[in-house]
Amino acid sequence: MATKASRSAARVMMAPAVILLLGWMLVPLTLTLFFSFKKYLPLRGDKWQNGLEWVGFENYSRFLSSSSFWPAVTTTLIIVLGVLIITVCLGVLLALLLDQPMWGQGVVRILVIAPFFVMPTVSALVWKNMFMDPTNGLFAHLWRFFGAEPVAWLSEASLPSIVIIVSWQWLPFATLILLTAIQSLDSEQLEAAEMDGAPALKRFAYIILPHLGRAITIVILIQTIFLLSIFAEIFVTTGGAFGSRTLTYLIFQRVLESQNIGLGSAGGVYAIILANIVAIFLMRIVGKNLDT
């Protein structure tokens, strides 16, 4: 795209895609903003055709002052952070293991990646019924085998349970990205470090981990974007009860259970703001990490 002609041709050809994407984003965003300033309770007879009552920032202040708002934000952050920590740590470990030459490497790698292909709803159901069920779950049997009282995972430890389920889903992604990063490490660097007198742990700390820095930031960035909006896992397991209501889930309840579209839309705008704060924060780190 060097010449003026090719640049303007490129612009013309990209236009449809850009317009489509803009529409795709702008229409729902504008509608959300629009509704968030309106009183809109369909069950109470509010109708689009009759015109909706303008309420200013009332929805916003109500959403914020609701007793469920801050707990929902905290829950969201706990889940995101918990999953990030678990997937990155275990992902690095697994990637190190999978990088070792071993028998049946291909099959093992495919098996490790497999959870990523299971739909969130399905995997959450499997975890709920097969593993975490307090009477018939595998964990309950295991606990009883050791003479312990089975844990009612989803009600007594709902947050850790959800973190475990979501981590299980995202671990393959982290492992995959980190494995390719490890494989791109020049083996001569490790050998040089070995000759320089660095034992295995120090080689990990001084050579492998810095080399993985970039891949880890990418894993964190991508996962955060998706984790901020997890929904199916909560819907299927706890239904938002037992302190597992995230911001996304709270919005869902406001819109669909209480049928308060205005309030839900205001929540949606808060979620957008939160996501952007996190994104800017992450972009800073990534930017620092990516330009070396």
Binding site: D186, E188, Q189, E191, A192, A193, G213, T292
Partner: peptide, 11 residues
């Protein structure tokens, strides 16, 4: 040892 690829630590 001095390696062919130099094997310097890039970071």
């Amino acid at each position: 040892m001095v390696f062919q690829s130099y094997a310097l630590y890039p970071h």
